[in-house]
Simulated assay, not measured.
Amino acid sequence: MDVDTRLLRYFAAVAEEGSLTRAAERLFVSQPALTKQIKQLETQLGVPLFTRSRAGMALTEPGQALVARVPALLADWDRALRETKSTAGRAARVLRVGFVASAANETTQQIIAMFARRRPGWRVDMRQAAWSNPTAGLADGDVDAALLRLPFPGQDTLRVEVLFTEPRWVALPTGHPLAMRDQIPFRDLWEEPFVAAPPETGRWREYWLATDEREGHPVRIGAVTDQPDDWLSAIANGYGIALTPESSARFYARPGITYRPVSGVSASQVGIAWGPADDTNPIVQDFVRCCLDSEPPRPGGAVA
């Protein structure tokens, strides 16, 4: 019998969390989709793996037997997969770097140029990910490193170095009454509908809604989007507003949208992330060094 490793990952997450809701948030999937996958695994194995109750998900005896084996099995598979992809990249002299939205802003080109000088003959393959994948493929082994907005789900399991910090602004429809202000207190935005990332992104979504900085005030969701173009359209069409890095005013300028500074909300950080297994990978570490040696952008877009 062949079992999809994805089903085993879902099973392990539910077993560790003891809750479908928490496991779904951790896996960036919806709860109904996760429930369906667990039932599929139980059907394939022909045994119940959990008993379900209001208190959560408890492992059955067959579930306990399986959960004891799964971590080592998945770790071996992940190691084999990473080594296979990494070997292919080394053979082609390609470093795969994931990113979300604008990556490291204007410094991205500077970093790539520095890496080219450090590693002649090597090429950096930049791979953009949707917001539903806040690690830009790093957690799945699809990339060797990633330029990411902090914080992101799973950050504690990876190596992360902060590159620079920039303020969070707000993107509003140009006709919005607040768009005429030079600066907007975050408190004045609490009653506004927000354009949000998908619920399964968990911590990522909560950060860009600034849920921890609302003094308990509930968030109104006007639209949910997963791509920059859809995000921009939702704002321009008046479905909501959104917190965003200050650099979005340069990277995502378009008619119908106005960007304004926001006071009373914390700044955003950009970091370089990689897996612990690549601590001794000289190619990845050279790229990390180029990131750390790069000059952070000045406010307004110029590189220092």
Rank of each mutant, 00 (worst) to 15 (best):
D278K: 02
D188N: 02
W208F: 15
P167T: 11
R117Y: 04
T107I: 13
W204E: 07
A139S: 14
A33C: 05
T60F: 03
R159P: 05
Q285V: 10
A13T: 09
A145G: 10
A196N: 07
A273S: 13
F287R: 09
V303Q: 08
C291H: 03
L81I: 03
D229M: 12
L95F: 02
S266R: 15
L73M: 11
T108I: 05
I184R: 01
V100D: 00
R54I: 08
T211L: 12
G63F: 01
F50T: 00
V288R: 09
L150E: 12
D76C: 05
S102T: 08
T5M: 07
A92W: 03
S248G: 14
P62N: 04
G63E: 01
P151L: 07
V94I: 15
G56Y: 09
I241S: 04
L8G: 02
V219S: 01
Y10I: 05
R214C: 08
Y239M: 14
A104G: 12
T87H: 12
W274N: 04
G98E: 00
F251M: 08
V124L: 11
P71R: 08
R181I: 06
T43M: 10
A113Q: 15
H217T: 14
R69I: 07
A234C: 08
I257M: 11
D76A: 15
P299F: 04
L292W: 05
I112Q: 14
L95T: 06
F50M: 01
P153L: 01
V219L: 08
F287I: 10
D4Y: 05
A80Q: 14
P32K: 11
R289L: 10
R54L: 15
L34W: 01
R93K: 15
D230V: 03
E106W: 09
Y207V: 09
E42V: 12
G240K: 05
P177K: 08
A13W: 04
G121M: 07
L150F: 01
A236E: 12
A33D: 10
E25V: 10
A92N: 10
L7D: 03
P120H: 06
T165R: 14
R118F: 04
F164P: 06
N133C: 08
